[in-house]
């Protein structure tokens, strides 16, 4: 762990007795003034980095797990090995995984290391949800698609994947929220994202404003992302809300 902490946050420490602001000198729990002064230099860049980290991880995870799920949908034997590997990846504690990856050539204390770890946490959820969604397409619906002359590919694109969308998006919601929260821990590796101010606050024993603000922003970001995915699902799957009239 020492290796990791050696790269400790470089965010300037604004709290403490040296500050010209009373709130900060007194190390009060929350200083709005600190937030407004550091928004443009600390918090906003951290938020942007956090969003980037998340988008990249979820996008790569989505592509990989969809490819794996489609393969397992056609070839049943693929399912077990993929489940075992992704389940192992999912259960490795995040700190341990960073430690494991860090010494590997090409990894080190880089964004790559952070992304690889984050992606590995999305795979199990996305793979399982997509595969389950596809498998739950009613047999008679698949039969009708084939019986009307659709090729396997047409049936997949026009019928099976659209019907699996609710399950796929449900998986995306869980994966996204998970990545947003884990990405704060990933700051230990690449020192970016909302984790950086949080770590800075942890290392500063008394001044906690940045921890509260950055932590709150991570929570709000997770809620917002989840809300957006819910809206996406509503748009893409209007039939799920169609009830007998």
């Amino acid at each position: 762990m020492t290796v990791v902490f050696a790269a400790a946050p470089v965010i300037p420490n604004f709290g403490g007795g040296s500050s010209q602001f009373a709130c900060e000198r007194a190390n009060r729990l929350f200083c709005p003034n600190w937030v407004s002064r550091n928004w443009a230099t600390v918090l906003w860049p951290a938020l942007r980095q956090h969003v980037e980290l998340t988008l990249i991880a979820v996008a790569i995870g989505f592509v990989l797990s969809t490819a794996l799920a489609l393969t397992a949908y056609r070839r049943h034997w693929v399912e077990r090995p993929v489940l075992i590997i992704t389940a192992i990846l999912y259960t490795i504690p995040s700190l341990a995984l960073f430690e494991l990856l860090e010494p590997l050539p090409g990894f080190g204390l880089s964004r790559t290391t952070a992304e690889v770890a984050l992606v590995s946490y999305t795979l199990l959820i996305l793979f399982r949800n997509t595969l389950t969604g596809l498998r739950e397409v009613p047999a008679e619906v698949r039969d009708a698609a084939r019986g009307m002359g659709m090729s396997d590919r047409q049936s997949l694109l026009r019928v099976e994947l659209p019907l699996a969308l609710p399950a796929i998006i449900a998986g995306l919601r869980i994966a996204t929220v998970t990545v947003i929260s884990l990405a704060t821990v990933a700051s230990l590796i690449d020192n970016e994202g909302l984790g950086s101010p949080i770590l800075a606050a942890i290392s500063n024993e008394v001044f906690k404003t940045e921890l509260i603000v950055a932590g709150g922003m991570a929570v709000l970001l997770a809620l917002l992302a989840d809300g957006l995915l819910v809206l996406l699902q509503r748009r893409l799957t209007p039939w799920t809300r169609a009830r007998a009239v």
């Binding site: 009613p138 008679e140 039969d143 009708a144 019907l163 039939w239």
Partner: peptide, 9 residues
Amino acid sequence: IQQTGLFPH
């Protein structure tokens, strides 16, 4: 077919 197989979406 009996179960219609209409596409729900």
